[in-house]
Design a protein around this nucleic acid. Structure first.
Lengths: 182, 182
DNA sequence: GGCGCTCTGGACCGATTGGTCTAGAGCCCA
DNA sequence: TGGGCTCTAGACCAATCGGTCCAGAGCGCC
């Protein structure tokens, strides 16, 4: 049913991203990923010599790209920062409902993983990329530098926190209400 | 070195709470917990018939109690809601630095675990307990009902989100700056 | 045709997983 | 002293873990 024509490497990344997002890095076995991606073990270790760890980083990057696209789309036609932020929160809430109440893909994939410092560095880099993206939109929409920095970080934090609470509650309402608290 | 006189059951809960908090439910094996707690397997399954899952719930509850005490202590002498919130954030930042940059113990212990609905329900119950605790302080400090509800949830969300970002950055600064964004 | 390459398929590995089971240590109370 | 508890101790289990390895399928190119 799923992506029959996608190349093996992409199928692996996609399957890994979905599974890691909902069960966490340690909650998913390579066998499960291979079954979902309909790929044999040899392919995994051909495309990702370091195995599961490499795959997790690739999956996190793919998830990050998707998130950046979502943010860009939300702010593209926004008249103000708050306007863009509201759109982003609603898009996220929809995604949250559709995917079955998963957590932030980065937090699930990279932070509970091995104490590998590369994982933490990658997670930090991705998060700062998100904040940077929002920051640029804020600046473009008229906020001064200090405001843009504070608002972009605050928005990220609110989304991240609301995501966790929404997951525990299995309810995206809290995500939708994020814009209200500015 | 660690808690030589504590009863076995408490040693197990304490060890589990620490390990789950930093590596997540799936990132810790029962063997590791037993080593840390200096207890044999028989004791674990005597005190917690359902094994790892029971232990995780107990560890999460213990962590929650500690958090509630922290919140109570922060708001006890507070002159205003914002005053209490600031104290709480600083206490959390200190704890965060001391424990080696772990995540929210509940999120780490219960949310990435098995799809067990009990886990989610327990996590939701604990989170709502935290928000309720903060809400009561807010009401006591003069906020009207709507304000108390909005502020307590917003504070929880900000702390939760900042916690995640702080972990990725290995830096508690963002946690300390939470009160600034009200 | 035949070489050389990328990629697939899966058997196989030792280590570790969570969990079961039983023997008995230690203690309380009659 | 001895029966009856609670709790400890760890051997043992099947299942699964992440990872290695190699045979060969398939294809492009000379």
């Amino acid at each position: 049913m799923e992506t029959p024509a996608l190349p093996t490497k992409d199928r692996l990344i996609r399957a890994a991203a979905i599974l890691f997002r909902s069960h966490g890095y340690n909650g998913v076995g390579v066998a499960e990923i291979l079954t979902e991606a309909k790929a044999p073990k040899g392919s995994l270790y051909h495309h990702f010599p370091n195995g599961k760890a490499d795959l997790a980083v690739a999956a996190a990057r793919a998830a990050s790209d998707e998130m950046l696209r979502l943010a860009a789309a939300s702010f593209a036609e926004a008249k103000s920062f708050n306007d863009g932020a509201a759109t982003l929160c609603h898009k996220l809430a929809k995604l949250f409902d559709k995917t079955g109440w998963d957590t932030c893909p980065i937090a699930a994939t990279l932070l509970p993983g091995p104490d590998n410092p590369d994982f933490r560095a990658e997670a930090q880099h991705i998060y700062d990329g998100w904040i940077g993206e929002i920051h640029d939109h804020a600046a473009r929409l008229g906020l001064d530098e200090a405001q843009a920095q504070a608002k972009s970080e605050a928005l990220f934090i609110a989304i991240q926190g609301a995501w966790t609470l929404a997951r525990a509650r299995c309810d995206s309402d809290v995500l939708r209400r994020v814009p209200d608290s500015l």
